[in-house]
């Protein structure tokens, strides 16, 4: 999974989001060691100081922890990951709903559209399997 950074928002905030996403989606497994600041900065093509700040913040939030001599690790607390997944899902859904409401859809329309599209996606999956 690559780093997708937009140019109009603070890099630091985007790094936090993307790291959370990578942890939740299992790119970095629970309890595993995180690459070094320098390697992460190179991979994301960002300033090492900015990457460092993002990591410190995730450490404060408890998603990462530092072992004094051996580096940074991902938390082993699965509940924490569930909470963050939940947070991300809420943000995404809110954003989506705001757009739909702006477009003039009613709550009922939104729900029926979602059901319809889910149905279509399931059929497509089925089609691609047979």
């Amino acid at each position: 999974m690559s780093w997708d950074l937009k140019s109009d928002r603070p890099i630091y905030a985007q790094l936090i989001e993307q790291l959370e996403l990578k942890i939740c989606s299992g790119v970095y497994a629970l309890g595993s060691k995180l690459p070094s600041v320098r390697d992460l900065a190179e991979e994301a093509a960002v300033n090492p100081n900015t990457m460092q700040r993002a990591l410190v913040r995730l450490e404060e939030d408890g998603l990462l922890y530092t072992q004094r001599t051996s580096g940074r690790f991902i938390t082993e607390d699965a509940n924490m990951v569930i909470q963050i997944k939940d947070k991300i899902a809420r943000e995404q859904i809110r954003e989506f709903l705001e757009k739909m409401i702006n477009l003039g859809f009613s709550r009922k329309d939104i729900l029926s559209n979602i059901t319809k599209i889910l149905e279509e996606m399931r059929e497509n999956e089925y089609d691609s399997r047979v």
């Binding site: 109009d8 928002r9 603070p10 890099i11 905030a13 900015t50």
Partner: peptide, 9 residues
Amino acid sequence: VDEIRDETG
């Protein structure tokens, strides 16, 4: 850079 992005969007 982040101050600029934060303050001006």
